[in-house]
Amino acid sequence: MEKAKEMLEVSKDESQIVSKLAVHPHRPNLDFSFYEDFTLRGIRVDRVESQLVVCSFKVPPRLTDRNGNLGSGAIANLVDEIGAVVIYREGLPMNVSVTMSISYVSTAKVDDELEVTSKLLGRKGSIFGTIVVLKNKATGETIAEGRHSLFSKHASKI
């Protein structure tokens, strides 16, 4: 148990870095939240069709692991966010992720330009299925592919 506690202890340097973060109160629909600013900043929407969204993303240092690769958590976040965008409808409640399955095929380094494509696979009642593919724009190499199912409550037709 002591070894686990030691592993979880925060060093003085790590503590100072975190204490310098400025986290301002979030004003919904007016500002980006800390989360949105940290994880989604820099994503550009290139194309939107009825059941397809294509975005570009340059890998920033803040989303990389110790080896300089785009982190697996950052990839999962992109699958979650960009997968939900393809079924988003203004004025309807937020979509909720039900399941995600991600295949990590290759790596992306800082400043690699990625293309992120989200496509609607289908719908059954209130459950939607999407697929999100991350590719290196320069090489065409697939970085990851994620399947994402979401629940979305639709407005009543009555």
Rank of each mutant, 00 (worst) to 15 (best):
D80S: 02
F151R: 03
R66A: 14
T39Y: 11
T117M: 10
T107M: 04
R47T: 13
L78I: 00
F128G: 12
F34M: 04
V96A: 02
V23L: 00
I75R: 02
D37Q: 12
A108V: 01
P93N: 08
G125K: 12
I102D: 07
S118M: 06
H24M: 09
C55G: 07
S156F: 09
A108F: 04
R89A: 15
H154E: 09
I143T: 04
S101A: 15
E115F: 02
L63G: 00
Y104G: 01
F57S: 02
F151C: 06
V48Y: 00
V59A: 01
L78F: 10
H24R: 12
Y88I: 14
R27K: 12
V79N: 01
S152A: 14
L92Y: 13
L134Q: 10
F32E: 10
G73R: 08
L78P: 06
E14Q: 15
S118H: 06
L150R: 07
S106E: 07
V105G: 05
G71L: 00
K137M: 12
P61C: 05
L134R: 07
I43A: 02
N95Y: 03
F34D: 14
V48P: 03
S126V: 13
G42N: 03
V116P: 00
K153C: 05
H26F: 11
A84F: 04
S15L: 13
P28W: 02
S106G: 04
S149G: 10
S106H: 07
S97E: 00
F38H: 14
H24Q: 11
L52R: 15
G129N: 13
N69Q: 05
G122N: 10
E145S: 10
N77I: 13
F38E: 08
A144Y: 03
R123G: 06
L114Y: 02
R27L: 07
E141N: 09
L114C: 00
V45L: 15
E14A: 15
G91F: 03
D112H: 06
S19R: 13
E115G: 04
G146N: 07
R62P: 03
I17R: 15
L150G: 11
K5I: 14
I143S: 01
Q51Y: 12
K135G: 09
P28A: 05
V116G: 00
D65L: 02
N29E: 11
H26T: 00
S149T: 15
E6P: 02
D13E: 15
A138D: 15
K109P: 05
R89T: 11
M100I: 07
L21T: 10
E49Y: 06
A74L: 01
R47A: 08
K109S: 09
S118G: 11
K137L: 11
N136V: 14
G146A: 06
S149I: 12
K124P: 02
L63H: 00
S106W: 05
L8V: 05
K109L: 06
S149N: 13
V59C: 01
R123V: 15
T64C: 04
A155V: 15
S72P: 08
K109Y: 04
I158V: 14
R66M: 12
